[in-house]
Amino acid sequence: MRRPAAPVIPAAVAVLCLTFAASCRPRPKVPGWVQSAPAESLAAFSGEAGWMLGHKAFQSFVSRDPIMERALDLFLQKARINPRRETGRVTFHVMGVPQQGEGDIQKGLEHVLIQLNQFQDPAALMSALAESFPQEGTLRLQGRDWPLYVILDLEVQGTKAHIRAASDEQGQIWIGSLEALNRMATRGSLGAEPDAALAAEWIGAKAPFQGYLQPDVLLGGLRQNLKGNNFIKDLPQGVQALFWSITPGSEKDPAIRFELALAGTPEGIGQVTPWIQRLVAAAEAVQAAPGAAPQLMQEKRRVGLRCNLTPEQLKLVMEKLGQPDFSFTLPGGPKA
């Protein structure tokens, strides 16, 4: 039987008021993929390579973009990457939102960028890239010109798709259309954006699954068009960055660790606590949370939530955040 949702976070929630002066704050420590992710990224989904490349539900999600799916499969095959043994991370970035009238294939390709980093042997990965694909042109990253490699050239419905790959100083691989790669190269990194860095610091840097949104930019004129129980539409204006992370439980401790962090203007962050309270209350209406009570942390420009969730609660929370609905279970973990 479901019990009614509580209007606010229970009194047992630990509220930590952190008052460090901004002038004394050290540089935020952010997850590796965030450090060099493009500042143009409006949304991202990042996960352990073995899970991302072998999970059927994720493969179904990627298949919505057949050209990028084919390009990624071709790269993995020729670069001889074995998802079952790989420990790296794969991140999908949305580089922009389609505007009215941008329904063609080429415009869609401009908004997708794949990032592969933290792989076991980045040098071998870069060598495989150079040996398996022809070089054509260069891309200027971090002050240097890096070779561009031809992954795929094809024509669909009269539109030409030019998918390329490039590496960088950190041994990361970037795969996308020429347009998406050039957009990435024209601006700095996501980790250098103050609000993104503040929010990213409060999620688990080693969490198997992580994600990111720029709520203010994405919502722009879309708030009224969002349907259903999507909580994102109710975020106050001024929230510039939203990060989440998920760490699945084990057989000994099945609780799923969920972390959420938001950053932005003092006015926006000052208004966001009731939104978090509603999110927690909705999850608790499904089932009693395992383990300790949720923990809420707040500063002038950021707020964070850490809690344990059941699979059912996690599914609901991700739905309300407008994120893909996957079964976040790692090999050897508890069965949902």
Results as ranks from 00 to 15, higher is better:
Met68Ile: 10
Val62Asp: 15
Ala11Ile: 12
Ala241Gly: 02
Glu179Ala: 11
Arg187Thr: 14
Phe258Leu: 06
Asp104Thr: 14
Lys160Asp: 12
Pro66Asp: 11
Leu116Pro: 04
Arg140Thr: 15
Gln323Asp: 07
Glu86His: 13
Leu316Arg: 07
Pro38Phe: 03
Ala336Thr: 09
Ala22Ile: 00
Met318Thr: 13
Lys320Gln: 14
Val34Asp: 03
Met52Arg: 02
Leu321Trp: 06
Lys252Met: 10
Ala281Lys: 04
Leu53Lys: 06
Asp145Asn: 13
Ala43His: 02
Met126Val: 11
Ala130Lys: 15
Thr265Ala: 05
Val13Tyr: 05
Ala205Tyr: 00
Glu131Gln: 14
Gly88Asn: 09
Arg301Ser: 03
Pro122His: 08
Ala282Tyr: 03
Ser245Thr: 09
Leu198Arg: 04
Phe328Tyr: 15
Phe58Ser: 05
Arg301Met: 06
Lys227Pro: 01
Ala128Thr: 01
Cys17Met: 07
Met318Leu: 15
Ile246Glu: 02
Arg89His: 04
Arg164Glu: 04
Leu148Asn: 05
Val272Tyr: 01
Ala49Tyr: 08
Val286Lys: 08
Ala200Ser: 09
Asn308Ile: 00
Leu190Ala: 08
Ser127Arg: 13
Gln142Pro: 00
Trp244Tyr: 14
Ala285Met: 10
Gly143Asn: 02
Pro194Asp: 08
Glu86Lys: 07
Thr138Leu: 01
Ile163Pro: 01
Pro294Lys: 07
Leu139Gln: 08
Gly221Met: 11
Ile81Gln: 07
Pro331Met: 08
Gln115Arg: 08
Glu259Met: 10
Arg223Asp: 05
Ala289Ile: 00
Ser189His: 08
Met126Pro: 01
Gly103Asn: 09
Pro274Gln: 07
Leu109Asn: 05
Gln157Tyr: 12
Glu48Asn: 10
Gln271Tyr: 03
